[in-house]
Design a protein around this nucleic acid. Structure first.
Lengths: 225, 225
DNA sequence: GTTGTAAACTTACTTTGTAAGAATGAGGCT
DNA sequence: AGCCTCATTCTTACAAAGTAAGTTTACAAC
C-alpha cells in the first residue's frame, strides 16, 4: 500500500526547484513548498543542499546548462547562435536572470560555457585582450537586454503596450514628449518587436568586433604575442 | 530635555533607505533597522510608504536621479557622459542594480532620464526607430556591464584576482584552458582594469550607432518621416 | 537478526513584513 | 484658553519563512 519512496538526489531537488520557480515565480519558491512538490518535508531538502542560497546557485547553473555551447563554425554565427540560445533560456526561466545578478559563485555549467565562448574567439584568431573585450561586451549586452525585455511591459501577449501607456500616464505626458512619441508610435504601428530589437544590437556589436579583429588586430596584440 | 521630534517625510525615509542599504547591504535592510536609523518604530514607516516594495521602488528612483541627464553637446559625448555617470552611480549603490532588475514600475526620475536620452538622439537626427534601437543597445550594455562588474571578483581592491582563481580552482583547471589562460594572464600583467573594459564596449557601440546614423539613416527612416 | 548510516521527520526558535487599533501631539476653531 | 481633528507614531500581535537540533526510519552489509 505504501508507495515506494524513491530517495531524493541533489539533482532532483535542483530540477524541482527550477520547475517550481517556473510555475509560481521565484519569490514564491519556499523550502516548504519545494518540499511539498517533492513529497517531502522542508528539512529533508537540507540533506541535498546546504541552504537556500546554494539551492538557488544550483538552479542558476542548471539554466546555464540549457544554453547551447558555441561550436566552431565561424565565430560570428557561433556567437550569434549562443546569444539567441541564451535569450531563449532566459525567456523560459525569467527568474534566473535576476538570480544571476545576485549570485557570485558560478557553477560548473557556467564555467564551461564561459570557457567555450573564449575558446571559439581565441581559435578564431582573437588576441587575448580582444577576446576578453569581446566576451565582456557580448555578455553584458545579452544579459542587459534580457533584463530590460522582462522589466518592460512590451511584447507580452496580454496588454502589449497598454501597460506601458498606463505607466506613462501617471506622469504629465507633455513633460516627456519623446517617451510619449515612442510609445504612441508603437501603439499605432504594432510591428515593433523585441526579437528584432535584440538582433539589431547584437549585430551592431558583432560588426564592431569583426572590424576590431581584422583592422585592429595588431593594435590589440601586445608585442610578445 | 526631550529632543524636538521632527516629523518624517517620505523623502527622508527613502534617503535613509539608500544610506542604510549602502552601509549594510540591501539584504540587511529591514523595516525595523530602517526605523531605528530614523529613530522611529518600524510601523511608523508605513505612513510614508505603502509597503517595502514601494520603499525599494522609491530608493531605486533616487539612484536614477543621481545619474546626470544628457545635455545637448553632440549626441556621442552626451551618451558617453551619461553612460559613465550611470556606471558611477551604480558603483555607489551596488544594490540598486539588482533592484532595477526586479522592479517594474519606474519612478519619475527614471522616466525623466529615459525621455532625456531619447530627446538627445531625436534632436541629433536619429529617426524614431533608430533612436529606439540606440536606446535599447546602450541601456542593455550599460546595465549588463554594471551587473557583471559587480558579480565578478575583479577590480576589487582587496584580493583582485585571487578570488577569481579560487573559484576557478574548484574545477579541474585543465578542462577550462581558455578561462585559465585569461585569468593567468591577468594575474601576470595586472594592467587589466574594468574602466577600460567598459570604454571598449561603449565606444564600439557608439561607433556602430554613428555608422547607422550617417550611412543608413535612409534605411531606418520609414517613408512617411 | 544486528547494527551502522544516510535520509527523512518533528519540533521549535528567530527574523521579517505588516495588520489593527490605541496613544500622542500640533494646528486650527470658537 | 479649551477643544477638536487628524496626521503621525507606537504597541501588540500574527503569519510566513529559513533553518538549528535532535529523533526516527529503513536499507545494506555483516
Amino acid at each position: 500500500m505504501v508507495e515506494k519512496r524513491t530517495r531524493l538526489s541533489r539533482d532532483q531537488v535542483l530540477a524541482a526547484g527550477v520547475e517550481l520557480a517556473d510555475a509560481v515565480g521565484i519569490e514564491a519558491l519556499t523550502m516548504r513548498k519545494l518540499g511539498e512538490a517533492l513529497d517531502v518535508k522542508a528539512m529533508s531538502l537540507y540533506h541535498h543542499v546546504a541552504n537556500k542560497e546554494q539551492l538557488l546557485d544550483g538552479m542558476t547553473d542548471l539554466v546555464f546548462a540549457e544554453i547551447d555551447l558555441p561550436d566552431d563554425t565561424d565565430w560570428r554565427t557561433s556567437m550569434r547562435v549562443r546569444a539567441f540560445s541564451a535569450r531563449t533560456a532566459m525567456g523560459r526561466h525569467p527568474w534566473a536572470l535576476r538570480l544571476m545578478g545576485s549570485r557570485t559563485t558560478p557553477g560548473e555549467a557556467t564555467v564551461r560555457h564561459h570557457n567555450a565562448v573564449l575558446g571559439v574567439l581565441r581559435r578564431a584568431g582573437f588576441p587575448l585582450a580582444l577576446a576578453a573585450h569581446a566576451f565582456s561586451v557580448l555578455d553584458a549586452y545579452i544579459y542587459g537586454f534580457a533584463v530590460q525585455e522582462q522589466s518592460l511591459p512590451f511584447d507580452t501577449e496580454e496588454a502589449p503596450t497598454e501597460l506601458a501607456q498606463a505607466i506613462l500616464a501617471q506622469f504629465p505626458t507633455d513633460r516627456y514628449p519623446y517617451l510619449a512619441e515612442l510609445t504612441a508610435r508603437y501603439v499605432e504601428s504594432h510591428d515593433y518587436n523585441y526579437a528584432q530589437e535584440f538582433t539589431f544590437g547584437l549585430d551592431l556589436i558583432l560588426d564592431g568586433l569583426e572590424r576590431a579583429l581584422t583592422v585592429g588586430a595588431a593594435a590589440y596584440t601586445p608585442a610578445r604575442e
